[in-house]
Design a protein around this nucleic acid. Structure first.
Lengths: 158, 158
DNA sequence: CAAATAGTTTAGCCTCGGCTAACAAATATT
DNA sequence: AATATTTGTTAGCCGAGGCTAAACTATTTG
């Protein structure tokens, strides 16, 4: 092996950014994100089912598939999971329905989603962009931040 | 089967929320989120490696494991992937380094992260919460929104 | 310098969330 | 009513991202 190895730099000039958080706190941040990821998809499905029921009166697997840009097989499998989790009831070739628990989840998600979306719009983000960003952000916004966003939106009516 | 089946409601009273977006747009929203998810973890690793290098002078697998609250085996596997993607160089039992591409990614991620974090603080979110939220949000904020966040932060200095 | 400890890798397992292909059931069309 | 179309399910595949256990390498310490 060569002696001219690439060497780590000294703890070095901080040109940007904050200090590293203490290990445990840092770890908790990542854990929080990982946990969010686990529930995220479930919530998206439930929320969408709720929206379809509300706006269309029914929620069919095919609609979910096309709106999520996912195969029907994937939706079918997912519905089985939602069923096992006690979030939806389903009978083949019939519309899906949300259980009580499902309805709660849908409402909560919808509410978070709306707060984030309206906040982004109040901030001045274009509608299309706001929708995309809101879809991704909604699962990662804490209650604290959500409350602040809501207040902001209210005091910055267009 | 019973005749008293649970029936879909009529297109119904909208108590809250916006109308459903057209199918194709809706689909693009979900696709965007799914794509973000694919790169998210990669970016988190690269960003963390960059931070460790900058603040500590070296980035060891063990540090990454404890800061991400993940097993060393998981980190080891991930490093192989990062290697294949041409983002890091590694030699067994030595510090990791970022390739040119890796450095670019790390800088970009770091920058996004900082913008979001400072924005949240400027909004009035407590530091600990802001850090957690920023970690989750950073991958889902479009350039457009990012620019707006930056302007907001600048004009709302504490 | 030998032994203990710390760091890293590999093997093998698991779950999730995608996919396609094949089939089955319901609905629509002719 | 027969056929075509749409809708839904099942089986089986894949990659990602976790895990534990076991083996191996490096470093530290007695």
């Amino acid at each position: 092996m060569s002696d001219h190895e690439q060497q780590p730099l000294p703890p070095t000039s901080r040109l940007s950014g904050d200090a590293l958080p203490p290990v445990e706190q840092h770890a908790r941040q990542y854990e929080t994100v990982r946990n969010a990821h686990e529930t995220e998809l479930i919530e998206d499905y439930v929320e969408l089912i709720g929206d379809l029921l509300r706006h269309r009166g029914e929620a069919r697997a095919a609609d979910i598939a096309s709106r999520m840009a996912v195969s029907q097989a994937t939706v079918s499998k997912m519905i089985r999971r939602l069923n096992e989790l006690g979030l939806v009831t389903s009978r083949p070739y019939r519309s899906l329905f949300l259980t009580e628990a499902g309805q709660n989840m849908a409402e909560t998600s919808r509410a978070r989603h709306d707060v984030v979306l309206h906040f982004l719009r109040a901030l001045g983000v274009r509608d299309t962009t706001a929708r995309i960003d809101a879809e991704g952000m909604e699962h990662h916004v804490s209650d604290e931040t959500l409350a602040i966003m809501q207040r902001f939106t209210e005091t910055h009516q267009t």
